[in-house]
Amino acid sequence: MYQIKGKEKIFVYTGPDGSGRKTIAKMVATAFDMETVISYTTRSPRHYEKNGEDYHFVNEETFNQMESQHEFLESVEIDGIHYGIREQDIIQAFQNHEYVYLTLNPEGTEKLKNMYGDNVVRIFIYADRDTVIKRQHNRQDADDVIERHMTHYDETMNYKNSCEYAYENYDSPQVAYQISELIESFLDRNLEVSDY
C-alpha cells in the first residue's frame, strides 16, 4: 500500500449521483494545482462521458485481471458494477502534487479513510432528491440508471454525518468557492512560521 508522506492529502468528493460532485471537484482543482485520480469501472460510459477523463472504462475480464495482480488500492462492487482506484495512479499523482482529489461513492471513500485516516478529507456534496433526479434527467441519464441511483439515495445521504465536511449544492460556483476556502485553510496550516 502506498505510504502517504509529509503534507500529502487526498480530498475525496462523495455524495449522491447527480449532486454535482464531479463538477465542483473540477472547479476547485483549477484554483489549486490539484491532480485527480480517475477510477476504473466495468460499467458502460454514458453518452456524455469520455474514457480516461470521467473513468477508465474496462471490461469485466480486464478488471478481474487487474484485481488479481493487486493493482487496485481499493475496489468495490455496487449493483454488479465494479469500481477501483489503481495504486500506481495515486503514486504518480503524488509525484508532482501534494494534494490529490478523487470522486468516489461512499463505499470507496470509507475504504480509503480506513487506510489513510486523517490524510483523507471527505467532502460530501448533496442536493435534495428532486434536484438530483432533475439533474440526472438534464444530463439525459436513462430512466433505469436514474432509478438505480435513487435506490441508493437515502443510504448515501446517511454517510453525510460521517464526512468531515458537507455542502448542499444549490449553486456550484458558490460551493466551489466555499470548498476552495476550506482547502486554502489546509494550505495555511502547513505554513512554516519562523521568527526573524
Rank of each mutant, 00 (worst) to 15 (best):
M1D: 09
Y2S: 08
Q3W: 05
K5H: 06
G6F: 00
E8P: 00
E8D: 01
T14P: 04
P16F: 09
R21A: 13
I24Q: 02
K26M: 10
A29H: 04
A29T: 09
D33M: 06
E35Y: 03
E35K: 14
I38P: 01
I38W: 06
T41H: 06
T42W: 00
R43Q: 08
H47W: 14
Y48T: 09
E49M: 04
K50Y: 04
D54Y: 03
M66E: 05
M66R: 12
S68D: 14
Q69D: 15
F72K: 07
S75G: 03
E77Y: 02
E77K: 00
I78F: 04
I78W: 02
I81M: 07
H82L: 10
R86S: 10
E87K: 12
Q88A: 15
I90V: 15
Q92L: 09
Q95S: 12
H97V: 02
V100I: 12
Y101M: 12
L112A: 05
K113I: 01
N114F: 05
M115E: 06
D128I: 08
D130W: 05
I133M: 09
N138G: 14
Q140K: 15
Q140M: 09
Q140T: 12
D141V: 02
D143K: 15
D144K: 10
V145S: 10
E147C: 07
M150E: 08
T156I: 15
M157D: 04
N161G: 11
N161C: 05
S162D: 13
Y165I: 00
E168P: 02
P173L: 07
P173W: 03
Q174G: 08
A176D: 03
A176W: 02
Y177F: 09
Y177A: 10
Y177T: 08
I179G: 02
E181P: 01
E181V: 10
I183H: 11
F186N: 09
L187G: 08
L187I: 11
D188E: 13
D188N: 11
D188L: 14
R189W: 10
R189H: 12
L191H: 10
Y196T: 12
